[in-house]
């Protein structure tokens, strides 16, 4: 299967028919739910929190946050995905945004942030003005700023290769995050899942 990241930019790839296919596909729903639950486990939040969902899509992950009484804001670049979210009446606030342009929230807004299957898109250069390096830095710098001190960011993502993982990790470190990578099912090529687990502010990391 080809990677959607290699076909077209996300707002083009997740058009109306792809968005509805993606959202109503029970296998996709199941996998997304499982990864969101795992991300929540890695976040280890003690109480109802204010959470940012980067690349929220149609709100599949957000619904799981809502079930735990968290309040969330979700950003996505695909209007069709957000439309699906509207139709499913998700509880979170959803907004049309490009994570590579930065996270437009004031300092210390969120207790935590999650992202499911999205941040690998930052490594793509779709247009002449899209410089992946700059977009990664803008993303991590602004994300760092809008998290509370010692706030966590957990992102499941699909790296194309090791160099992409390194590129993402490095940008997060430069922005000031500590933490690293958690790989689930490392022995299985098919079920292997990558989670970036970061904490804003220094302090020792527990991974």
């Amino acid at each position: 299967m080809s990677r959607p990241e290699d076909l077209a930019p996300p707002e083009v790839f997740y058009n109306e028919s792809e968005s509805s296919k993606y959202t109503t596909n029970t296998r996709v729903q199941h996998i997304q739910a499982k990864m969101t639950l795992r991300a929540l486990e890695l976040l280890n939040l003690e109480k109802s929190s204010f959470i940012l969902d980067v690349g929220c899509g149609s709100g599949l992950s957000g619904e799981i946050l809502s079930e735990d009484n968290h309040v969330w804001c979700g950003m996505d670049i695909s209007p069709d995905m957000l439309q699906q979210g509207l139709e499913r009446e998700v509880d979170g606030d959803i907004m049309l945004q490009d994570m590579g342009q930065g996270i437009p929230f004031r300092a210390g807004s969120f207790d935590a942030a999650i992202s499911i299957s999205a941040i690998q898109w930052l490594c793509n250069a779709d247009t002449s003005y899209n410089d992946p390096k700059q977009r990664l830095m803008r993303f991590f710098n602004t994300l760092f700023g809008c998290l509370k001190k010692n706030g966590k960011f957990v992102a499941q993502f699909y790296p194309k290769d090791d160099s992409q993982t390194d590129q993402i990790l490095q940008a997060s470190k430069i922005a000031g995050f500590s933490g690293g990578l958690v790989v689930d099912n490392p022995e299985s090529k098919k079920n292997r899942k990558y989670y970036l687990v970061l904490t804003s502010g220094s302090g020792s990391s527990d991974i």
Binding site: I77, L96, D98, Q101, T127
Partner: peptide, 14 residues
């Protein structure tokens, strides 16, 4: 629109 803010920036502001 429809409760969704559009925060996308045009290329010259991004």
């Amino acid at each position: 629109k429809n409760g969704i803010p559009n925060l996308l920036l045009p290329p010259h502001l991004a």
